[in-house]
């Protein structure tokens, strides 16, 4: 079960951000923002090699005392970040991966929506709902 999910655009501006506890949103934003440094670094390293065949899943970006942060970058440089409670040992790497894959497909759906302008912050309620479901693992 993830505590926070962020979708960050190409220009590293947040497109979507949600967390289970809205009161902590600002804190999570700081964490996710810091994680972007790592994402960028990983992408930079990757770009030296074959970029096309890059694995979208970046794995764990870094751990904090209370949280673990995972990253996933699409081929269009849209970044998905999942923050997981460190005490949560139940989540395995594979589950994180599948969460990312679900988020990716949700994101693809929202981009397909003709009423959504790519690059704008996402404020669709149904999207928020599905992401929350993915976070809580009720999908």
């Amino acid at each position: 079960m993830a505590v926070c999910v962020g979708i960050i655009g190409k220009d590293n501006s947040p497109k979507f951000f949600t967390c289970l506890n809205p009161a902590e949103e600002l804190n999570f934003q700081y964490k996710v923002l810091s994680a972007l440094d790592v994402v960028e670094e990983k992408l930079n390293c990757g770009s030296k090699g074959a970029t096309d065949l890059r694995e979208l899943y970046l794995g764990m970006l870094y751990t904090l005392e209370t949280h673990k942060i995972y990253g996933y970058v699409t081929n269009t440089k849209i970044k998905f970040i999942i923050v997981v409670d460190s005490t949560n040992m139940a989540l395995r790497d594979n589950e994180i991966r599948s969460m990312f894959r679900k988020i990716h497909s949700e994101y693809a759906d929202i981009v397909c929506n003709p009423f959504y302008i790519p690059g704008e912050p996402i404020c669709s309620k149904s999207f928020t709902g599905s992401i929350k479901n993915i976070m809580t693992g009720t999908v």
């Binding site: 501006s13 934003q29 700081y30 923002l33």
Partner: peptide, 8 residues
């Protein structure tokens, strides 16, 4: 530029 994390 209009980028960055507005809340922060």
């Amino acid at each position: 530029a209009d980028q960055g994390w507005p809340a922060l």
